[in-house]
């Protein structure tokens, strides 16, 4: 018995569509943004085009999938897969943010030293990212602590 035509198949194909469109569109958006001198409005426009393009493709494919497959409510395996994916992507996200934070910090230090000790670098992104990391860690430890007390 093949596995096509099920509700889970819809979710699997929907996820695959998101993976492929994200893998194709956003690296191109990033590359196009990084090439040449662009002002903030051009960068915003490039990002907007990427987002609209992905949403449009997703809508068309989802309509096609909805017609071709039957949809069922999520079950425990879907939740388990989503939880595992979120855990791994969260770790990747946190690691990436820490690396970017460190690079920004080193660049700010170099800029300060080369300007004779005067800090001319706008540090609010550093504070913002650092604050986000603190918040996410607080949430993680709070949920874990609550889990040990309640569950």
């Amino acid at each position: 018995m093949n596995e096509s035509g099920t509700g889970a198949d819809f979710r699997a194909k929907s996820n695959l569509t998101a993976l492929i469109t994200t893998a194709l569109i956003y690296p191109a958006v990033l590359l196009f943004s990084a090439i040449g001198e662009k002002n903030i409005f051009e960068l915003a426009a490039i990002l907007a085009v990427g987002v609209v393009l992905q949403i449009s493709i997703m809508i068309v494919i989802h309509i096609f999938l909805a017609l071709k497959t039957t949809q069922e409510p999520d079950d425990e395996r879907d939740h388990d897969l989503a939880r595992r994916a979120s855990h791994v992507s969260g770790t990747v996200m946190t690691s990436s943010v820490v690396i970017v934070l460190l690079i920004m910090l080193v660049r700010a230090m170099i800029a300060t030293v080369s300007s004779g000790g005067e800090t001319n670098v706008d540090l609010w992104p550093l504070y913002g990212i650092f604050g986000s990391l603190i918040l996410s860690e607080l949430v993680r430890y709070t949920i874990t602590a609550r889990g040990y007390r309640v569950d």
Binding site: E3, G7, A8, D75, R77
Partner: peptide, 16 residues
């Protein structure tokens, strides 16, 4: 559950 979940359980690829 979905049929794919039954398939995964049958093949011992998912513990319910």
């Amino acid at each position: 559950v979905s049929r794919q979940t039954v398939v995964a359980i049958e093949k011992a690829k998912y513990s319910p």
